[in-house]
Amino acid sequence: MIGKNVIKKEEISGVEVKETLEEFSQNYELNYEQNVTLNHLARFPRFSLEDSQEIMEKLENDIGLRHKVAVHIVDLIPQDLSDLRLIFAKEPTQVTKEEMDKILEILDQYYPEE
């Protein structure tokens, strides 16, 4: 990455990375790391781009989660409270069981088809 400057640093969801790489691959050849990333992202069920953005918006606005945590939730798609607790294990703010139940309800509305 010699000669490259970081212009902006922001967490983005896996589906955004996948779509960006697919778009990029139409005009350019992907390097090894990009190919591995794209293959990995294609193997697992994901929310659509529109759904992931809606979910992140709901998690940030309705529940008050940080953007980074919302991205992790959308990428990992936790299916129960124990999965969700693992995401919050190292977070500085505590989330109540009621908030976790609400997160799971939001995810159930958009759950991707396998």
Results as ranks from 00 to 15, higher is better:
Met1Asn: 05
Gly3Phe: 08
Asn5Trp: 01
Ile7Cys: 03
Lys8Ile: 05
Lys8Ala: 12
Glu10His: 09
Glu11Arg: 13
Gly14Ile: 00
Gly14Lys: 04
Glu16Ser: 11
Val17Ser: 01
Lys18Thr: 01
Thr20His: 06
Leu21His: 05
Glu22Ile: 09
Glu23Phe: 14
Ser25Phe: 03
Ser25Val: 04
Gln26Tyr: 11
Asn27Ser: 13
Leu30Ser: 12
Asn31Asp: 15
Tyr32Glu: 13
Glu33Trp: 08
Asn35Pro: 00
Val36Lys: 06
Thr37Ile: 13
Thr37Ala: 15
Leu38Asp: 08
Leu38Phe: 07
Asn39Leu: 10
Asn39His: 07
His40Trp: 02
Phe44Ala: 13
Phe44Asp: 08
Arg46Met: 14
Leu49Met: 09
Glu50Tyr: 10
Gln53Cys: 05
Gln53Arg: 15
Gln53Ala: 10
Gln53Asn: 15
Glu54Cys: 01
Glu54Tyr: 09
Ile55Arg: 07
Met56Asp: 04
Glu57Ile: 07
Glu60Cys: 10
Asn61Leu: 08
Asp62Met: 05
Asp62Gly: 00
Gly64Lys: 01
Gly64Val: 06
Leu65Arg: 07
Leu65Gln: 04
Ala70Tyr: 01
Ile73Tyr: 11
Val74Cys: 07
Ile77Ala: 03
Pro78Glu: 05
Asp83Glu: 10
Leu84Asp: 04
Leu84Lys: 00
Leu86Thr: 13
Ile87His: 12
Ile87Met: 08
Lys90Cys: 04
Pro92Leu: 13
Pro92His: 12
Thr93Gly: 02
Thr93Arg: 11
Thr93Gln: 11
Gln94Cys: 03
Thr96Arg: 01
Lys97Val: 12
Lys97Arg: 11
Glu99Thr: 00
Asp101Val: 01
Asp101Ser: 00
Asp101Asn: 14
Lys102Phe: 09
Glu105Ala: 13
Glu105Ile: 02
Ile106His: 02
Leu107Arg: 01
Leu107Lys: 01
Leu107Thr: 03
Asp108Gln: 15
Asp108Phe: 08
Gln109Leu: 06
Tyr110Asp: 05
Tyr110Glu: 06
Tyr111Met: 08
Tyr111Trp: 12
Pro112His: 00
Glu113Leu: 13
Glu114Pro: 04
